[in-house]
């Protein structure tokens, strides 16, 4: 369709994005599901507390796990939202604005999340 010409940047970036969605999707299937079952059904939300998180993040395994999960989930989700914007927002200005906001929000959330997972130190609050 002529009006769509140039609307979707085809080529290398889109191919990589397409492949990223599938590869990260497969990894997320395992990681997000495990996270959901452990944190929402093993430990329930009622039992969740600062001490539980401090315990979980005492060793490097769950910290690394949560860091990888954060990155994959956030960029999988952000790219999905980008595709949705491309599908529904036609005007060039609005598309640029909404995509810019999306990318900015994603990067800010990634920085916040990564900073918390990496630098969290429960001992700072020990009494």
């Amino acid at each position: 369709m002529a009006s769509y010409a140039g609307a979707r940047p085809s080529g290398r970036f889109e191919v990589i994005a397409w492949l990223f969605m599938r590869v990260s999707g497969i990894v997320l299937l395992v990681m997000a599901m495990t996270h959901l079952v452990i944190m929402h059904y093993g430990i329930t939300v009622n039992e969740l507390s600062f001490d539980i998180v401090a315990q979980r993040w005492d060793g490097p395994f769950w910290r690394l796990y949560d860091f990888v999960l954060l990155g994959l989930a956030l960029f999988h989700g952000a790219n999905g939202a980008r595709v949705v914007i491309n599908d529904y927002v036609y005007s060039k200005g609005w598309r640029l604005l909404s995509t810019t906001l999306l990318v900015t929000a994603s990067v800010v959330l990634m920085i916040i999340g990564a900073w918390v997972v990496i630098t969290f130190d429960a001992a700072r609050f020990a009494v």
């Binding site: 989930a73 956030l74 989700g77 939202a81 949705v84 959330l109 916040i112 999340g113 918390v116 609050f125």
Partner: peptide, 23 residues
């Protein structure tokens, strides 16, 4: 469902940030 999970993820990251402010 994808947009829904993404919305929750944003809330989830913000709430996790409160860890750095103490118990």
């Amino acid at each position: 469902t994808g947009l829904g999970v993404l919305a929750f993820l944003a809330v989830h990251i913000i709430e996790t940030f409160f860890l750095t402010l103490g118990p």
